[in-house]
């Protein structure tokens, strides 16, 4: 990551298509998760069209599920937006971690590819860069696949309610967790990373326990980043 290759940021139709296909197998689960959201949202009293529009425009599963918890005749706007903001805050980290390559792109493309940034395609994109391969095809193509199947799944849930009545009992709430763990395990790991991750895990757990709801991701990630700064300095001294 310290030496940024100039060719890695390239982005063309072929790379996007490859990235799209790469994420399609996961999209089966995304459809199921989307269907669960579509059903839950209509049950919460949101109009059918509005549910599909929400999935299309917001494209953030956890934030959307959280918003349902607050939905009713009256919705407390500030509370809901703060909840969405805190859950979505990890997108800030995604943009920051991809910045060494994003800055090589012209602004329109730079912000364009971030439109579909989401957990799975971000993780795969960053991993590709780590291996010295171009990653923006995965970010954009994979993101488009996830987005498409998220919307299709929502539509399915809205139209044929009851496809997935209780997503939890089918383990569908664990789709992203399992996927991200698989990415984490398959990446290049070394001792320095393990130290950073231990710090991140501890900070995240403490935040989960003692800080306001949903703040654990950003707390843990920032702690891991700070550990990264000091960890390397210590090694440099020797």
């Amino acid at each position: 990551m310290n030496t940024v290759d100039t060719g890695l940021h390239r982005l063309d139709g072929r790379l996007v298509w490859t990235g799209f296909r790469e994420l399609v197998p996961l999209s089966i689960f995304v459809v199921a998760f989307g269907a669960a959201f579509g059903l839950a949202a209509t049950q919460a009293g949101i109009g059918e069209l509005a549910v599909v529009v929400m999935s299309t425009l917001v494209f953030s599963g956890y934030a959307q599920f959280a918003a349902l918890e607050l939905w009713g005749q009256q919705v407390p706007v500030i509370t809901m937006l703060v909840t969405v903001l805190v859950i979505s805050a990890r997108h800030l980290l995604m943009g920051a971690t991809l910045y060494p390559w994003l800055r090589e792109l012209p602004p329109v493309k730079r912000y364009g590819v971030m439109l579909v940034a989401s957990d799975a395609n971000w993780a795969m994109s960053l991993q590709a860069f780590g291996r010295g391969q171009p990653g923006f095809g995965l970010l954009l193509g994979g993101g488009l696949a996830l987005w498409l199947f998220w919307v299709l799944g929502t539509l399915l849930g809205v139209c044929s309610g009851g496809v997935v009545r209780d997503p939890r009992s089918w383990g569908l709430d664990m789709v992203m967790g399992c996927f991200l763990l698989a990415v984490l395990v398959s990446g290049k790991n070394n001792w320095r990373m393990l130290v950073n991750w231990s710090v991140a895990a501890c900070a995240s757990l403490l935040a989960f326990r003692y800080l306001p709801e949903n703040s654990h991701v950003i707390t843990g990630a920032v702690a891991g980043g700070v550990a990264g700064i000091f960890g390397r300095e210590k090694i440099d001294e020797h």
Partner: peptide
């Protein structure tokens, strides 16, 4: 180095709880 340390940590922070 901060970004580097943070990249995997986002996932860890999500998964630990």
């Amino acid at each position: 180095r901060f970004i580097d340390g943070m990249s995997g940590s986002v996932l860890v922070a999500l998964l630990a709880p």
